[in-house]
Every structure is written in C-alpha cells, then in structure tokens.
C-alpha cells in the first residue's frame, strides 16, 4: 500500500487537538494520583538525610515488621496458588451442582470490606468469640498473633489467582484435555503437560497480584494483629504506628520500602508479560489469520 500524503487525515484517527487533549489528560491524571505521591514518599523519607533513612529501616522493630510481612506473603502466596488452581480447575473443567454458588463464594472476599473480614475472625477465634473458650482452654492463640494475621491475609488474597484463571480456563475449554486423554495421558500428565502450560502466565500474574496484596494488606490485618511491636506488626501497620507517633520521616522511610516492594513486583510483572509475548512472536494474529494462510 502506498504511503499516505502527509496532509491527508487517516480515516481511523481522531483530530490532532483531540488526541493531544486526551493524552494530556491521561498523563496529568497519572502524574497527580500516581507519580506525585510516589515522589512524595521518597522525598519525605529522605528529608532527614540518608543516615536517618537507613536507621529507620534497620532498627529492630522495622526489621521484625519486614520479616513478618515477607513471611506472611511467603506462606499465603503458595497456599493461594494451590487453592486458586484447584478452585479454577473445579469450576471450569467440571459440571456439578452448586457450581454457581461456589463461584460467588470464591469472589466473596472481594466484596467484603477487609475490616469486616478481620472482625469476622475476631468474632470466631477471639477470646470472647465462638471458638474462644475452646482455644483458650488449649492455650492456642489465633487472634492478636501470627495465625490470625496469616488467616485474614489468606482470606483477603484468596480470590486473586482463581479470578485470574477462571475466565482464561473457561475460554480454553476442555478439548485439549480430552485430546490428551484419548492419547493415553493420565490425570497427572494432563495437568502438568496440558493444563498448567496453558495457564502459566495467568498463574504468574495472579501470584504477583496476590503477593502485592498480601504484603500491603492493612485493614484486616490491623483488626486481628494486636499491634505488638516487634511481634505482630506488619510493615503497613508499622508505618501507621510511626506516623501516629509523629515520626513522619521514619514512617515514610518504611513506606518507601513497601513502595519499593511494589515497584519490584511491577517490574517482575512487566518482565513476565514480555516473556509471554516472545515465544509466539511470529503469530501476531492467531486462529483467524492462520486459517486464511
């Protein structure tokens, strides 16, 4: 096709002023609500100098909060990985009564406020709660301790991976699995060789989102944690604690750590998406283009 003469407007684009306006609005919005706060976090964190910044990060309570946060995420993400795959597998590859109810149930944590989620766990496991006396009698502490934090984090983050997988697996259907079956594969082989490779990128994406939320969750964790410094204080809670004590530079220093974790997560996600595109780079228009060829 010959190149368009420069003065002619391409039929499929908007006029230049409209394009500039829309792009300008988008950039302005991103700058105001995303970039500016991020810059503010780091400038506030470094206001008292790099030494104060570093001191705020390495003091024992901050370190304990960091390890707790990483530990909780390290525990919750793999568990949710298994739960997410199992739930998506059950919902998309099988027919059974109560399926619609299960899908609703999987999404429930998204529609419940995290604070409410925390309260539910206090009501069930707290000293005055449903199972409270039973737990106290056996000297098991769940609320205001690590198990409580892990439980609410699991609750809040449980839909992420399943939600990522279900639409994809629904679109993919079960034909490839059936083909594998007729070719003699057993259930385990079908899962590892057919199902898992087809969902691996969505799985990674879901795990990244799940991890980001597990490390950043404030509301639900705040209700059940008990805020015991050096013990049940996660990073987000530690930030709030410092801020309430007017140690704003330290608070922002710790917040910048969370921001860095988030940025790191975003970079990993970006790399994952690039890797996802590359193996099929030659096939820019799958299916439709393929048939015409």
């Amino acid at each position: 096709m010959p190149a368009h003469p420069r003065h002619r407007r391409v039929a499929t684009t908007e006029p230049a002023w409209l394009r500039r306006l829309l792009i300008g609005l988008a950039i302005g919005f991103v700058g105001l609500v995303l970039v500016l706060p991020l810059v503010a976090v780091f400038t506030e964190a470094l206001r008292k100098g790099i030494d104060a910044y570093w001191a705020a990060l390495v003091e024992p309570e901050a370190r304990a909060a960091l390890w707790l946060t990483l530990g909780v995420a390290l525990f919750c993400v793999p568990l949710n990985l298994i739960f997410g795959i199992a739930a998506a597998w059950a919902v998309t590859k099988h027919e059974f009564p109560g399926k619609a109810a299960l899908i609703t149930l999987i999404e429930l944590p998204f529609s419940v406020s995290p604070v409410v989620a925390g309260l539910i766990y206090v009501l069930v496991f707290g000293a005055q709660g449903l199972l409270g006396p039973w737990l106290v009698a056996r000297d098991v502490q769940i609320v205001f301790a690590l198990p409580g934090i892990v439980l609410v984090t699991l609750f809040v983050t449980s839909p992420f991976i399943a939600r990522e997988l279900i639409p994809l697996m629904q679109a993919q259907g079960t034909e490839e699995e059936q083909a594998a079956l007729t070719l003699g594969a057993n259930g385990w082989q079908i899962f590892w060789r057919v199902t898992l490779p087809n969902i691996r990128w969505a799985l990674l994406y879901g795990a990244i989102l799940c991890n980001a939320r597990a490390m950043g969750e404030f509301g639900a964790v705040s209700v059940v944690s008990g805020h015991i410094r050096g013990q049940t204080n996660t990073l987000p809670l530690h930030v709030e604690l410092l801020y309430n004590e007017y140690q704003s530079a330290a608070a922002f220093a710790v917040a910048s750590l969370l921001a860095l974790l988030a940025l790191f997560t975003l970079i990993v996600k970006h790399l994952a998406e690039r890797l996802q595109v590359r193996p099929r780079a030659p096939a820019t228009a799958p299916n439709i283009g393929g048939i015409a060829a």
């Binding site: 034909e175 490839e176 059936q178 083909a179 594998a180 079956l181 007729t182 070719l183 003699g184 594969a185 057993n186 060789r193 057919v194 490779p197 087809n198």
Partner: peptide
C-alpha cells in the same frame, strides 16, 4: 478412554497450543 487406544480427531482439532507441531505429534 486412555486405555482404549482410539485415535480421536476433534472438530476444532484441539491441538496443544503451547506445543510445536512435533511435540503435538509426539505427545501420545
């Protein structure tokens, strides 16, 4: 089904999309 040794060709082929042609054929 996996023990019947029956070759099935699906209407929409159901090829393994993440495998090359050779790997598809080698699957069984």
């Amino acid at each position: 089904a996996r023990e019947r040794q029956v070759g099935f060709v699906f209407q929409h082929y159901a090829l393994f999309r993440h495998m090359s042609v050779a790997e598809n054929v080698a699957f069984g």
